[in-house]
């Protein structure tokens, strides 16, 4: 029997793998992908709570919809920034970005 705790622990595993990726990756694109993984873990948590705790009203599921939309907006902006940085200075590793002005 699958309980709420199964989903929560799985989401925690995904979250921590994503956190490890964010902390170790150097390329900006890989950091963005790992952030997507973290957001997915959060969405999974919300959906599981929605089904297991308050299944009569789909409040958690609607939060998941909002989060997916905002994640899409975030990744669009981030990818545009990466393209811009790459065109201006041919840089992809975040810790070699030193100049943010102009």
């Amino acid at each position: 029997m699958i309980t709420l705790n199964h989903y929560l622990v799985l989401a925690a595993v995904l979250f921590c793998i994503g956190l490890y990726g964010v902390l170790t990756a150097r390329g900006a694109l890989k950091i963005i992908i790992c952030v997507e993984l973290i957001l997915n873990a959060i969405n999974l948590n919300l959906a599981a709570f929605s089904v297991f705790v308050a299944p009569n009203e789909a409040v958690g599921a609607s939060f998941v919809v909002f989060l997916i939309v905002m994640a899409a907006a975030e990744i669009g902006l981030a990818l545009a920034l990466i393209i811009l940085l790459n065109r201006k200075s041919n840089i992809s590793a975040v810790d070699s970005i030193r100049r943010l002005k102009g």
Binding site: T3, L4, N5, L8, V9, A12, V13, F15, C16, I17, L19, Y20, L23, T24, S50, V51, F52, V53, A54, P55, A58, A61
Partner: peptide
């Protein structure tokens, strides 16, 4: 990074398991 992630995972798991969630019978939405 590995240590931070593992510690966070352990803390999260302990919190999840020790909290008495008021779950009801799950019905698909």
């Amino acid at each position: 990074a590995l240590v931070i992630s593992l510690v966070l995972f352990c803390v999260l798991t302990i919190v999840f398991v020790s909290t008495p969630w008021e779950t009801v019978v799950p019905s698909p939405q």
